[in-house]
């Protein structure tokens, strides 16, 4: 192997600092959430305890953390499923280059780059003028979709740009209907990418703040609840909550990545029947 140039080591150190920059702060609050009962918001540690985690599970003076978590989780699942289904359908549609597809594409890009507060404000105004009550499962759900769907669509573009059409043609040549081709050929091939879309759908919804702010109504989602806490909670309990929900995010991400990996392994093992005879 070729000897590494000196620039490699310089850049490797730079990369190391970047990773430290990314993860350092969250590790710090991870450590600080184990503050002793008398500890404050910064170092030094005043003893080590799980006091603040226990505090989270007890009756809270402010807000309803567990209710907010349940709502965020439910909403995340709703957004995830909708994002996967709608993105796949739209991805299939865009392969056909139908009239007006360019316009729809630009609408999706607009949805991605529009300042989030406009969605929040606009949806809030529409609901109030129509005399409807904003609720996380209606207005909040729709507002979040404007953030997750463009990501799903972009992933589908990336997937179908690399998709080998000859698989479909082969299926068609052997007499498969359009639905059979989709069900037994296209979907299994793109399945790992769909897990990716699902990961985006769930996590972006679970952490979404700006577009949910004016559209969630009287029952907060978790990020809104956490933001509310920042203004009136001055104990490490907020770090404990931050640590817990970040750990939860990591578990979710790991589960998704693991399933992609397992699927890849399974496919490598079972994918080809070459040489096995039929």
């Amino acid at each position: 192997m070729e000897k590494r140039p000196r620039s490699f080591y310089v850049l490797a150190v730079f990369f190391g600092f970047f990773v430290l920059f990314l993860y350092g702060p969250i590790l710090t609050i991870g450590i600080l959430s184990f503050q002793g009962p008398k500890g404050g918001l910064t170092f030094p540690m005043n003893g080590v305890s799980t006091h603040w985690f226990r505090d989270l599970f007890q009756e809270q003076a402010v807000g309803d953390i567990w209710g907010a978590f349940r709502r965020s989780f439910g909403l995340g699942l709703m957004v995830m499923i909708t994002t996967v289904v709608v993105s796949v359908m739209a991805g299939l549609a865009f392969r056909k280059r139908f009239y007006g597809s360019g316009l729809l594409f630009y609408a999706a890009i607009t949805s991605l780059v529009i300042p989030s507060i406009l969605i929040s404000l606009g949806v809030g105004l529409i609901f109030s003028q129509l005399g409807l009550k904003v609720h996380w499962a209606t207005s909040g759900f729709g507002a979040q979709l404007t953030w997750t769907l463009p990501f799903g669509l972009l992933i589908m573009f990336a997937v179908f740009n690399r998709f080998d059409k000859s698989y479909e043609e082969a299926a068609r040549d052997q007499g498969a209907t359009a639905w059979q081709t989709l069900r037994h050929v296209v979907l299994p091939i793109i399945a790992p990418s769909l897990i990716g879309v699902a990961l985006f759908g769930f996590t972006l919804s679970y952490d979404e703040f700006a577009r949910t702010l004016l559209t969630a109504g009287s029952y907060n989602t978790l990020p809104l609840e956490i933001f509310g806490m920042t203004t009136n909670v001055t104990t490490p309990v907020i770090y404990a909550l931050g640590t817990l929900t970040t750990a939860f995010s990591f578990v979710i991400i790991a589960a998704f990545l693991l399933s992609v990996w397992i699927m890849g392994r399974r496919r490598a093992r079972l994918g080809s029947d070459a040489g096995k005879g039929v």
Binding site: L22, Y23, G24, P25, I26, T28, I29, L32, L41, T42, F43, L199, F200, T203, L204, Y206, D207, F209, P223, I226, F227, T230, I238, Y239, G242, T245, T246, S249, F250, I252, I253
Partner: peptide, 17 residues
């Protein structure tokens, strides 16, 4: 991976620094 975690918490986590 940080992209898939909460922005609010990533902001809060600068306070002790």
């Amino acid at each position: 991976i940080p992209f898939w975690t909460s922005n609010i918490i990533r902001m809060i986590s600068w306070i002790p620094f």
